[in-house]
């Protein structure tokens, strides 16, 4: 069977060159496309939620901002009964099949949303300063730490903002907003990435 994966284009393929240009600067932007994502909706605290937690290797997070990571999969809290599972270790069909099996016949839904969002990685010493130009969430380390993820806006674009390391963030915009967000970020980064800047 022909491998259709080689034919696909990420939503930001046309900006990859511009993003690469500043990779040695105090802040860098790149796209990590085609991660597997699944939307999980199930009643919190139910037996089905527990079974899904077992499949993911850790219980589903219970409060805003929390994530649980295990084996290349991370479950992000999106709402009181809604989670986003992001995986770098599974094919979409395999992940949704495993989650469907865990859900069984109980009320809830598992949907492959891999094409819904793309992932932008913003990293470097100035990453927080760039985000703070347009994000209403308090990103100071006393409130926002690695492993936390919230749904918010960056500029005018709704994103899931996920801190993965002390100076690294993942932004998950809808694919159709990704171009605007990437250009917004490149503009916000310009003062730190311009030639001659420290």
């Amino acid at each position: 069977m022909a491998d259709l994966a080689i034919l696909r284009e990420s939503p930001l393929v046309h900006l990859h060159e511009r993003m690469r240009a500043g990779h040695d600067r105090p802040v860098a932007l790149r796209e990590t496309a085609f991660l597997t994502m699944a939307s999980v909706r199930v009643r919190p605290g139910s037996a089905a939620a527990r079974r899904i937690g077992e499949v993911l290797g850790g219980p589903l997070p219970t409060a805003c901002g929390e994530t649980t990571a295990a084996g290349g999969r991370t479950a992000l809290w999106l709402g009181p009964d809604e989670w986003l599972v992001v995986s770098s270790a599974d094919e979409p069909a395999a992940l949704t099949a495993a989650l469907h099996e865990a859900l069984g016949g109980d009320p809830g839904s598992i949907v492959d949303v891999s094409a819904n969002r793309t992932v932008l990685e913003l990293s470097g010493a100035r990453a927080r300063a760039v985000l703070e130009k347009g994000c209403p969430v308090d990103l100071h380390p006393r409130r926002f730490t690695p492993g936390r993820a919230v749904t918010t806006t960056v500029g005018p674009v709704p994103v899931v903002l996920w801190q993965t390391a002390a100076t690294a963030y993942r932004l998950l915009p809808r694919s159709s907003f990704a171009d605007y967000l990437a250009r917004w970020l490149l503009d916000a980064m310009a003062e730190y990435t311009a030639p001659g800047e420290p």
Partner: peptide, 11 residues
Amino acid sequence: ERWVHSTGCRR
């Protein structure tokens, strides 16, 4: 009055 957290948890 009613409010919805439309860019957050949508509740």
